[in-house]
Design a protein around this nucleic acid. Structure first.
Lengths: 102, 102
DNA sequence: ATTTGTTTTGACAAAAATAGTCAAATTAAT
DNA sequence: ATTAATTTGACTATTTTTGTCAAAACAAAT
């Protein structure tokens, strides 16, 4: 159950980097990166991509982690989590076919 | 594949109500309701609940519809929709047990 | 085809949520 | 204890979302 924050923190530590170093490389304030690592703030998609490139991670995998964090948070306190997600998937796939069809 | 907008529009029409009437009953500007019905804007949770009460609909069902609309929109243009949602569900359920355990 | 009634659109303002900056406080390591 | 790293929090800036309103578009009917 790895969150986006877990991933980038593990990655940074395994490479022996300091927040300051990552911050200067990515041009993101180190306080913010600290918050990302602990899940206190959510990065933008552009930031997620920067992290993927910098740590040489699979971009889709990292985006999946980031997006699923967000979705998990929005439904956390709801009743029918499974149902909501099932319907959401149907809608997303449906909308996708519509778009492609146009 | 009924969106929140579809539901409240169908409901309004089946009851033969005008936007103006619903607007005054719920104290929501009629232009906004028009936009909700066509999916141009997303209501807040409080507004969703107002609609459920006013049209006498199952609150959870309506919230499911509303939430799934939102989630569908956020993942629409992503690659691995199924994967994202699967991971999101795992995370949500996991976070839920954590919270309950505390 | 003009009047009357309804819905939709769009420009704008207000409010809320999110993001960034920075220094001080805290924590960890030596 | 000193030095170094991380975390916190107050503050500002920016972006996103929401609400308001009137005019435009549309529909129905006479």
């Amino acid at each position: 159950m790895e969150t986006f924050g877990d991933i980038i923190k593990t990655e940074r530590e395994s490479k022996g980097l300091l927040l300051r170093q990552v911050a200067s490389a990515l041009e993101i304030d180190q306080a913010i990166i600290s918050k990302f690592e602990r899940g206190e703030r959510k990065p933008t998609k552009e930031q997620v991509e920067k992290f993927a490139e910098f740590y040489d991670l699979d971009k889709n995998k990292l985006i999946t982690s980031w997006l699923s964090d967000q979705i998990a948070n929005t439904i956390l306190y709801e009743e029918n989590i499974g149902e909501v997600l099932k319907v959401a998937e149907e809608k997303a796939l449906y909308l996708k076919t519509i778009h492609n069809g146009k």
